[in-house]
Amino acid sequence: MSRLRSALWLPLFDDLADPRVVAGLAADAEEAGWDGCFVWDHLSWQPPVSRVADPWIVLAAIATATERLRLGPMVSPLSRRRPAKVARETATLDRLSDGRLTLGVGLGGDRFGGELSKTGEQLDDRRRGRMLDESLEILAAAWSGEPVRHHGEHYTVDDLTFLPRPIQRPGVPVWAAGFPGRPRPIRRAARLDGFFPINLEHPDRLAETVATLTELRRGEMASYDIAVALPPGVDPEPYAQAGATWWLPELDPGVPLDTVRGVLRDGPAR
């Protein structure tokens, strides 16, 4: 089994709503031996959080402040983003970072910030799931560098070519978020490059999910990633034994900057 890699996972609220602060944290993390820096993608959050940063601008700052770290939104609810715009953003960011972008995707939700209902976005989970899958089709086509001709249920891209392509081939790696045990997210993740389980409560549950993914992927797991977010202090080793390839310390929304620096100083998984 490959080494368990470690990434900061930063909610871009309040103390972390300044892109220069987050870029500095990422540079310090790289120097301290961390492997990645992923950021939340939200328009709003419930009180007492009041300040929110845009993830794509922050990721551009991280890309220019680091040389080695893997980076990306974890996760981006594609149903509230135009896929053609995301195609441009991801290709540009992958080139800016010299091929270090990972795109985390998911359904998103309205529970904590009302960011779907307050902006007139789709609230039905299944419909957002179809929008997510359609967006992923468009992104894969766009990253190929060939003309995209897509006329779907939710989106139209009529004979556009998205150049320059991302550095990574065949495109930017995509990890899908989902609850373990729910078949639709697992099937979606099996078609992609990684899985980001939500609310993972026990390594045995992860092992069950990994077994399902292995079966769906017909054993092709050598380059597949599984990222687990765990509260600081929880030993990631049992999850690594169950199949995790990435460990992300879970930080609360509105976390003080000093707390983040403490997690950073504690270092990556050994």
Rank of each mutant, 00 (worst) to 15 (best):
Y224M: 00
P253N: 14
G152M: 11
P164T: 08
Q168H: 04
L192K: 11
R205C: 03
P170W: 05
R149E: 15
P253Y: 11
H150D: 07
L230I: 15
G243W: 01
E201K: 10
A222R: 03
G219H: 10
Y224A: 01
P232K: 12
P166L: 08
V255G: 08
E208V: 09
G181H: 04
V172D: 08
R165T: 15
G194W: 12
Y239M: 11
V172F: 12
R182E: 11
D204I: 00
P166F: 01
H150P: 09
L206E: 00
H150E: 02
T209Y: 03
P238N: 13
L163A: 13
R182N: 06
E146I: 02
G152V: 06
V148S: 13
L160D: 09
D204N: 03
G194L: 09
R218S: 05
S135M: 01
G194T: 07
E250V: 06
P173Y: 00
P249L: 01
T209K: 12
A140R: 12
E137S: 10
A229G: 15
M221T: 13
A189N: 04
E208N: 13
A177I: 14
V174L: 09
A242C: 05
I167E: 12
G171P: 00
E215D: 14
P164V: 09
L160R: 06
D159Y: 01
R191F: 00
L251D: 02
P197G: 06
F195M: 15
G145D: 03
W247C: 11
A222G: 12
H150S: 11
G254Q: 07
G181Y: 02
L230Y: 07
L248I: 00
V234W: 00
V148Y: 06
P236A: 14
Y239L: 14
L230P: 10
I167P: 00
A244T: 04
F179R: 15
D252E: 02
L132V: 07
E237A: 08
S144M: 01
A141N: 09
A244H: 05
P249C: 04
L213F: 01
E137H: 03
P183C: 04
P147K: 13
P180A: 13
G233N: 01
Q168D: 02
P236R: 15
G219P: 07
S135C: 09
T245R: 06
W246Y: 06
T214G: 09
D252V: 02
R187K: 08
R184I: 13
A222P: 06
W246I: 02
R130F: 00
R191D: 06
L200G: 02
Y224E: 00
G171L: 04
P249G: 02
D235I: 08
D193E: 13
T214P: 05
L132K: 07
P197K: 15
P180S: 12
R184C: 06
R205Q: 11
G219S: 08
T214E: 05
E237T: 11
G178D: 08
H154F: 12
